[in-house]
Amino acid sequence: MTELGAEDLVGGVPSLGSPNVPTLAPEGGEVQVLASGWRLATREFLSNRLAVVGLGILVFFVLACFLGPLFYHTNQTISNPLVTDGAPGATHLLGTDDNGFDELGRIMAGGQTALEIGFFAALMATVIGTLYGALAGLVGGIVDGVLMRLVDILLSIPLLFIVLVLATRYSATVLSQSLIIGLFSWLVPSRLVRGEVLTLRVRDFVVAARIMGSSQRRLIVRHLIPNALSVVIVNITFLIADSILLIAYLGFLGFGLTFPTASWGDMLGNAQQAVESGYWWLVYPVGICLVLVVMACNLVGDALRDAFDVRLRRR
């Protein structure tokens, strides 16, 4: 907190309100100097130790998966029948899999695709969901009714079912898996954004802008979007977590990416046999990586939500 200097204060206005007080302070009192909204949210976020840990985990995995292969060269394209299912050792730190690929290198490569799919799917779901939800919330009436019933319908069909059935029909690439997941996970964000738009629309500051003569476009651009943004941002992290879990399920059920590309999910496709054969290095390292990344996303999301909430709820 900094003190306000006398030159900042308003002089010359007779301070009617406090007749027996020398008019040094502005009538309205001084302003407690705090950080800006975003900075305050950042501070709140950083003060949450778990969130920092989560963020650290995410940063670590992004760096390790994308930069790691530059330092740890492995062959991930041509299978080598001579070294299949090798236990961890000096040449292969985490052993080799049933195709003879180095497991650590594969975790890095698989992490790249998993993170990419998670990110693209979440991004697509967010864009579609935000536009759809905003449209429903802003137009209202019958349009809103029809749009939201459609969301109800789609939400009633278990996501994994749709994704699995579609996965039987399309060749599995990073792009196609992102598309399939993204195209069917926008429902929750659309509901969130619609709800946010509906509550924002009747908030006094939006009413005030309307009374000033603000156009609909200005209302949306200046007030609704910036205020709905925090909900959307928080949801992205949860969407990434859910998408990564979903590709893990796809991989486990045998609908992974086309050989030799792989994601963490695909690497767990043969996990059952690996466990039974005692090849633990083919199951636990990659499984733990997956759990850590998903958990980190959830932690960051939770903390972001709290941070944004704190900011709006202050005082």
């Binding site: 879990l245 893990a248 399920y249 767990l268 997956l290 759990v291 998903v294 958990m295 959830n298």
Partner: peptide, 8 residues
């Protein structure tokens, strides 16, 4: 548990 795939 929440962050874990069921099969894992």
């Amino acid at each position: 548990l929440y962050s874990m795939p069921a099969f894992f």
